[in-house]
Design a protein around this nucleic acid. Structure first.
Length: 422
RNA sequence: GGAGGCUUCGCCUAGUCCGGUCUAUGGCGCCGCACUGCUAAUGCGGUUUGGGUUAAUCCCCAUCCCGGGUUCAAAUCCCGGAGCCUCCGCCA
């Protein structure tokens, strides 16, 4: 939710942001008008209420006889107040959608344009080469290792589901352990959150807007299955005022994630790149807005540390304004090399939501100067299936075995290589 | 699934039966000032949050879990909902 004061004080900045996102700058003027109407309505209702209160005091002081005659005037006033309040709530009502229509103001430096207008910030690691043999894709490798079973998953649950079995299951646990250990080592509070949440949590984090079709809803109970633990982690402090001295407050959530993948028919149908359910280790930070940009770089650095520990080749992109989503002011994605696709694929993503998400969730901080919204940021540490894809494909050997990077070995009982099952 | 209780400005709490200076009591905590070799103790004052207005102050409005209703007037009365707790039943 955008700061209306910023909007009033500097509408051009908001218009420029809209332009960079490829969205309608006119939405800014619609919002300004709605804000104006609301303020007028509030002023009017406020003064009428003041009058009514004064009348109430007179009524109290009046004798029984006087009260009878005064009562008529009281009725009139009451009706006027009711009318003014109706206009006030109508104006409030009208403001809401106008406000939701304006996404977060982009951070200075974010590239303008759409999905393809990202800027590559850095490319890290060597792309593997294959002399005289062709690499197998992750599904073939997973089947050879007895690690991934999508056929039986289709039987049990349908398309875009998978069983991780044997070393596949162990691999997930190892990845999660490594990720959580890394996060805890730098001070994150580990969290296992609920993944079935109320509409307010979903709405507050911005997932019921343009991406509403992406989320699973449990009709009978009016609950949603989260697509990321960002939702419960952000909503964890909803409606609270945090002591600014305790910031940044960093949480690392481990949870299943559920995605309907509506509208992605035909995309990534093979293997486990795009699935309806997966586990993920997610970083989440509450910090002072002034520190948000720096904190964002820290989250990116921790993502890169994890990719580095797994010895994966990857690149970092600065996502273009039009591809940010409504809450993010800036977003960096890390994309790991996928040998059989001969391209980089997103494995992590970190967003700086500034105070936009916090405002909607009512999360504020108390500083010496007073209370104001804080900033929220999130970043993937390990989205399990995609990391398994990258790991299997990049570290495969000609015989279908997969080398285990040193950092992961302690979590796999010291195993250095995953061998194809008999 | 059933029965009952609770929810007040950071925390605890008075007030709710019987509507009106509730413009919400007191304690703790916190902030400021005074006093004091220092600290502590003590005294005095301040301390919900959001909005409107303003250059800023002042001032005004809302806010007693949330949403409706009754009334000239609601923390207080009525209806609906949420959360928490206790007990019974069922269940890993």
């Amino acid at each position: 939710m955008i700061d209306l004061r910023l909007l009033r004080d500097d509408p051009d900045r908001v218009r420029a942001s809209q332009q960079a996102r490829g969205e309608d700058p006119h939405a800014v003027d619609v919002l300004l008008a709605a804000d104006e109407r609301r303020r007028a309505a509030v002023s009017r209702a406020d003064s009428l209420r003041a009058e009514q209160k004064a009348f109430g005091r007179a009524m109290q002081a009046a004798s029984v006889d006087e009260r009878a005659t005064l009562r008529a005037r009281g009725g009139e006033l009451s009706a006027e107040v009711k009318l003014a309040e109706a206009e006030q709530s109508a104006a409030d009502e009208a403001l809401r959608p106008a406000r939701l229509a304006v996404p977060n103001v982009i951070e200075h430096g974010a590239p303008a344009g759409g999905e393809d207008d990202f800027v590559v910030l850095e490319t890290v690691g060597e792309i593997p080469t294959y002399d005289g043999w062709s690499p197998r894709d992750h599904l073939e490798l997973g089947e050879l290792l007895g690690a991934i079973d999508v056929d039986r998953a289709a039987k049990v649950s349908g398309a875009r589901f998978y069983f991780l079995t044997g070393v596949g299951a162990l691999l997930e646990l190892a990845l999660v352990n490594l990720a959580v250990a890394q996060a805890v080592a730098v001070g994150f509070i580990p969290v296992i959150p609920p993944v079935l949440v109320r509409p307010e949590a979903m709405e507050g984090t911005g997932f019921l807007g343009a991406h509403a079709a992406e989320v699973y809803r449990l009709e009978a109970d009016d609950r949603y299955l989260v697509g990321t633990s960002e939702v419960p982690l952000a909503a964890y402090h909803a409606g609270e005022v945090l002591d600014a001295a305790r910031l940044p407050l960093r949480y690392c959530g481990f949870s299943p994630c559920f995605r309907r993948e509506a509208g992605s028919y035909g995309k990534d149908t093979r293997g486990i790149i795009r699935v309806h359910q997966f586990d993920k280790v997610e970083m989440f930070s509450f910090c002072r807005p002034e520190e948000a940009a720096v904190e964002h770089r820290r989250l990116l650095a921790w993502e890169r540390q994890f990719l580095g520990a797994l010895e994966l080749p990857y690149r970092v992109i600065d996502v273009a304004a039009g591809d940010l989503g409504s809450s993010a002011a800036r977003k960096f994605d890390c994309e790991a090399w996928v040998p059989t696709q001969e391209r980089y694929r997103e494995v992590t993503s970190t967003s700086n939501c500034t105070d936009f998400q916090a405002r909607r969730l009512g999360i504020r901080m108390r500083t010496a100067e007073g209370v104001r919204p804080l900033a929220t940021l999130n970043g993937t540490l390990c989205a399990v299936p995609r990391f398994i894809v990258a790991l299997l494909e990049n570290h495969q050997q000609p015989d279908g075995a997969v080398r285990v990077p040193a950092a992961l070995r302690p979590w796999l009982g010291g195993r250095e290589v995953l061998e194809p099952a008999g």
